[in-house]
Amino acid sequence: MAVSPPVCDFGAPWHDFALPGTDGRIYRLEDVTGPRGTLVMFICNHCPYVQSIIDRIVRDAAQMQRAGIGVVAISANDVADYPQDGPQQMKTEAARHGFTFPYLYDETQDVAKAYGAECTPDFFGYNADGELQYRGRFDASARRAGPADARPELLQAMLRIAETGNGPENQIPSMGCSIKWKTT
C-alpha cells in the first residue's frame, strides 16, 4: 500500500544521529552535513518506489554533492520481517549502484521516528542552518520510473536551497512503501 507523507514543515530542525554505515563507520549528522545544505533520505533495498529511481538518486546526489550539499541515506525497516533490507544487503546495494553518500542502518528506528519518516523514499532537504525546506517527491516517478526527461524536483529544490536557503513553496509529497515498523 502506497503511503504519502505530510507536506513540508518549513523551518523544522534536523535531528542528530549516530548510525553505522555500510562501510563500517559510525556517522553523526555533523559528518554528513554540507556547507550549503543537507539531504537526509529514507530508502530501503526492496521498495519498488525506491528501485524505480535509485540510479537517478545516485546521479542527482553526485550533482548535489558537487554543489556543496551533504547527502545521506538511511534504512530503518524491520529486518526481522524484511531481511533483504539488512546491513549486508545494504552494503551490496550501495556497491552495486555506486553510492557516493553514506548508507546508514537505523536498527532501533529511533532516527526515522525523530524525523517523522513515513515511507521509502522520504526526502528531507535542509538548508545550511539545519532548517527543513523540502519534503517532496524525487520526480514524477512512482512504482515505475517516470519519463527520462521528468522534471528533477528534488534536485532543483536542493540546488535552490543551496543558493537561497529556501525551498519552493509548492511541493508534491513523495509516495512509496510504508516504513516497516517493528511490532515489539
Results as ranks from 00 to 15, higher is better:
G167E: 03
C44Y: 03
R56L: 15
F138A: 11
D110C: 04
T120S: 04
W181Y: 06
G86H: 05
E107C: 08
I57H: 01
A112E: 03
D110A: 14
Q63I: 12
F101I: 11
E118H: 03
E163R: 08
D149Q: 11
L159R: 03
V79S: 07
Y115C: 04
A112R: 00
V79Q: 02
I54M: 13
Q89R: 12
D9T: 10
A61V: 00
A18H: 06
A61M: 05
I74C: 02
L19A: 11
R144E: 15
P5F: 13
P20K: 13
G21E: 06
P5M: 14
P6T: 12
N170S: 14
S174L: 06
G146S: 02
Y103K: 07
I26P: 01
T183V: 13
Q133P: 08
A148Q: 13
D78E: 07
D81K: 11
M90C: 04
P5W: 13
E169K: 14
L104R: 05
R25K: 15
Q65K: 04
T108F: 10
H46W: 10
A148M: 11
K91F: 09
L155M: 08
F138N: 10
T120P: 01
R66E: 14
T100P: 05
I53Y: 07
D85N: 08
P152T: 05
Q88H: 09
E169W: 09
V7G: 14
P102N: 15
R144A: 13
Q156H: 13
Q156M: 15
F99Q: 04
A67S: 13
M90R: 00
P20A: 15
F101R: 10
E30T: 12
G116T: 11
I69L: 09
M64C: 01
Q133W: 04
D81Y: 12
F10I: 13
W181K: 00
G21I: 03
P152Y: 02
Q63W: 06
Q133S: 08
L29M: 10
P13N: 15
L104S: 08
I26T: 14
T183L: 14
F138P: 12
L132W: 01
M64H: 01
A18D: 11
D31H: 13
W181M: 04
T22M: 10
G21K: 02
K182C: 12
V3C: 08
P147L: 09
R135M: 07
V40Q: 05
E163T: 07
G70Y: 09
L19D: 07
V7W: 08
T184F: 14
H97F: 14
I57A: 04
Q89T: 09
R28M: 00
H46N: 11
G37S: 07
D85I: 07
V7R: 15
T164F: 15
P87Q: 15
P87C: 13
V79F: 05
K113I: 05
R66S: 13
Y103S: 09
K91L: 12
D122H: 08
P48T: 11
Q88A: 15
D60W: 01
R36A: 08
M90E: 00
R56P: 12
T164N: 15
G37T: 06
Y27D: 11
A12I: 01
T38W: 03
C119T: 01
D106S: 03
P121G: 02
R96M: 06
A67K: 03
G136A: 02
R96V: 03
R135Q: 12
Q84Y: 06
G130K: 04
I74A: 00
C119G: 02
L39C: 06
R36I: 02
V3P: 00
P147Q: 11
V79E: 10
